[in-house]
């Protein structure tokens, strides 16, 4: 497992603990070593809690990008049954950076889709690092319209470093593709739940992010720009990413405080990758809970509430 720089003290303590355990097994006449082991265990738990409950913005960004973190496909495989993946935008091609299709969550059929990253170099290239082209957003919209047609709720899982800034992406209208999704998603007749499961970078994230409920997992980020790019533009150097991460107020709790998201889904201590099963369980429970409230609502009421929510975002003086 990849260790993040700020997690090193934990690893040190873990090593000490292992050593102490070994010694305790070998030779522990007076029971003092057992005591030391217990103490170390306690310290480790304390340290973990201390560390993971006081993470900086940048540290959360790092966790959100952890290479072992569950991706969209992992969530689909672990919280739904009978997933049927649907491909293509019926126009140009099938964008591998977004996957989606119908699936069942405990008997409730949903349309579930999201950006997909890769695990190794080959996969990452195949998935274009989770950076969709216009056809990805158009595929997503096609699938969402399909869900609307068959009256099935929509779950979007967001995890992207941004929409792909490429030449062909511009030629095929990256801006238009995202813009259209924003407009169309705001008037979808079925419930829409959007969950940031990793990185929520700017328009590339928002392009599948207009929902009745927008939720962030605990160690994720969502903002108008990545801390690195923000640093390079505002500080004219790549070295201020930590400062930029703080300034952007991009973490789940800050986003909730600012009224820009509707809720936070708890993760296992230190991140979803530490105990993926727990993360799947939490996400599934949250989806079920939210759907229960949303499904009974009148479609028009739901749409107007959705639009009103986004319409109220913004702070200005008069």
């Amino acid at each position: 497992m990849q260790i993040l720089d700020f997690e090193k003290p934990i690893i040190e303590l873990q090593k000490q603990l292992e050593k102490a355990r070994e010694l305790a097994i070998k030779d522990d006449k007076k029971g003092t070593r057992e005591k030391a082991v217990a103490e170390l265990e306690e310290n480790l738990e304390k340290l973990k809690k201390q560390l993971y409950t006081h993470l900086t913005g940048w540290q959360k960004v790092q966790i959100s990008r952890h290479p072992e973190r569950p991706y969209t496909e992992d969530y689909i495989n672990n919280i739904t049954e009978n997933f049927v993946e649907l491909h293509g935008d019926r126009n140009v091609k099938d964008d591998k950076a977004i996957i989606g299709g119908f699936a069942s969550i405990d008997g409730q059929t949903v349309m579930i889709l999201g950006q997909q990253k890769g695990r190794n170099t080959k996969e990452r290239q195949y998935r274009n690092f989770g950076m969709p082209n216009p056809e990805g957003y158009r595929k997503a919209l096609r699938l969402m319209k399909l869900a609307e047609k068959f009256n099935k709720p929509i779950i979007t899982l967001i995890d992207t470093p941004g929409a792909y800034p490429g030449l062909e992406a511009e030629e095929r209208g990256q801006g238009e593709a995202i813009a259209r999704n924003l407009r169309e998603m705001s008037v979808l007749k079925v419930p829409v739940i959007c969950i940031i499961i990793g990185e929520g970078a700017s328009g590339g994230a928002l392009g599948i992010g207009i929902g009745d409920k927008v939720l962030m997992m605990e160690y994720t980020w969502y903002s108008v720009i990545s801390p690195e790019s923000c640093s390079s533009i505002l500080w004219r150097s790549w070295d201020f990413k930590e400062k930029a991460a703080d300034a952007l107020k991009l973490t789940a709790d800050q986003m909730l405080d600012n009224g820009l998201i509707d809720g936070i889904i708890k993760e296992p201590l230190g991140g979803a990758h530490n105990e993926p099963e727990k993360a799947y369980k939490n996400v599934k429970a949250e989806i079920k809970k939210q759907l229960k409230d949303l499904i009974d609502m009148d479609a028009e009421v739901r749409i107007m509430k959705r639009i009103e929510k986004f319409s109220n975002m913004g702070v200005y003086a008069a």
Binding site: S223, V224, L260, F310
Partner: peptide
């Protein structure tokens, strides 16, 4: 204005 700015895209499009 970070995410506040981002959400203006959602607001205007809605």
């Amino acid at each position: 204005e970070a995410a506040f700015s981002l959400m203006q895209m959602a607001k205007t499009s809605a």
